[in-house]
């Protein structure tokens, strides 16, 4: 993002924004996956970079994270797409 021209004239929102329960939960899951060597922070970053640019800017910070986490768990085979589809049916 360093020096990227389209953001150079954009004001910075310096207000503080409270985190939501969603944000905290995603953050905590990421930490646990890191601590248990299920997924590194570098893999998290790779997964975030893999999000197509239009979607990247539409998603919030932690929405990108959960998407990257899901991506990495599937890539690593920690969960399968069948399991994830079934789990999505139940929520």
């Amino acid at each position: 993002m360093g020096g990227v021209s389209k953001f150079i004239c954009e004001a910075v929102d310096t207000e503080s924004h409270a985190l939501t329960d969603f944000d905290r939960q995603v953050d905590a899951i990421r930490q646990i996956l890191g601590a248990k060597k299920v997924m590194s922070v570098d893999e998290l970053r790779r997964g975030i970079e893999a999000i197509p640019e239009a979607e990247y800017h539409r998603l919030s910070y932690y929405q990108r994270w959960i998407r990257s986490i899901a991506d990495n768990l599937l890539v690593r085979g920690v969960i399968t797409e069948v399991e994830l589809l079934a789990a999505l049916e139940r929520v």
């Binding site: 590194s40 570098d42 893999e43 970053r45 790779r46």
Partner: peptide, 8 residues
């Protein structure tokens, strides 16, 4: 090397 860690 983070370039490798990123792909496990």
């Amino acid at each position: 090397n983070a370039e490798d860690l990123a792909f496990a």
